[in-house]
Design a protein around this nucleic acid. Structure first.
Lengths: 172, 172
DNA sequence: TTGATTGCAAAGCATTTGCATGCTA
DNA sequence: TAGCATGCAAATGCTTTGCAATCAA
């Protein structure tokens, strides 16, 4: 319906409609947090987002970021993702296709992928157990292309590379 | 190699070998915790196990259970599972086939399943990204057969059924 | 004997909640 | 103005760590 001249116009419209429908209030904090979230095409934790937001307005509190992220999730703009370490990450959800994740346990790289066949097989399995699926979450842990190469190069010296997302290998 | 007269003889052998190999010590606490773990064919949290162990020896502390569960995981007897709420659950791992989980968001029921085709498709996808997979975790959230039936029966009155495992619907 | 193990209490994290103050509608 | 939102501090829930006492090898 709406044109899309300004950046994130659609997302902001969704946000404002949600605010209206729920009888909530539009605040400068919420607007800024949304803005920063939309500008960052990545998986971010509440804390990640908090620091980014801090740069623009040092008065915003952690709590507000937590709460707003929940709000964005409710509005359908964000989506919670568990990468495997303790915390909760968020990714864009609005007009984003469903997908799954491959997570590099060396460097923390997250690859998004999608396979219709995989989806179909899952539904098939659910059916077999008369289980009515609502969501699913598939994570493949392993080593990304880049890190495989590095491993070969310096297969001896211990590289002190810090994973961006520390993922425990022993997940599920 | 070993016969299997007494219960869990093989598991205990694996445990003791791990203890030996690592230069660790066999203690009554560890033996009891292993025993109780093996007797319970279920997904249990550290706290679940703690209470079960308490019944047999009230002197055992939470910490020991946490530490022993880690130990059993290292020994290949247990396996960490994230069901989706905050905590970590453990399931038997020794001579248990790999499998995935369907989790009922109403009652917390956990169904284990396995599909070779699903596995194959996953490897195929990984290959496409030159990703070397080491583990994976697939959770399908939804409503189990039983709960679907109940939903229809009492589609009006709010049933106060307490999920055994409280799973957030908004997972990944 | 010696160093691994235990159990308690305290510390750590990520996240949530209580509440007085502030601000939107 | 009314009551939702904010931000701080405190509380929570799960898990880990420090440490003195204990115990297996």
């Amino acid at each position: 319906m709406a044109g899309k001249e300004p950046k994130f116009a659609d997302e902001k419209e969704v946000f404002e409609e949600h605010i209206r429908n729920q009888g909530l209030r539009k605040t400068t904090q919420r607007e800024l947090i949304l803005e920063v979230f939309l500008e960052t095409e990545d998986h971010l934790s509440s804390e990640d987002l908090y620091w980014l937001v801090q740069k623009r307005d040092p008065n915003i509190g952690q709590t507000t970021v937590y709460r707003t992220l929940k709000l964005l999730t409710d509005a359908g703009l964000a989506r919670e993702v568990r990468l495997g370490d303790g915390r909760t990450y968020y990714e864009h959800h609005f007009e984003h296709e469903h997908h799954d994740h491959m997570i590099c346990t060396e460097c923390g790289l997250v690859i998004e992928f999608f396979s219709p066949e995989l989806e179909a097989k899952q539904d098939e399995m659910a059916d077999k157990y008369n289980f009515k699926p609502t969501h699913h979450s598939l994570r493949i842990l392993g080593i990304c292309e880049e890190c495989q190469r590095k491993e070969k190069e310096i297969s001896s010296a211990a590289s002190g590379a810090q994973p961006r997302v520390r993922v425990k290998t022993t997940i599920n």
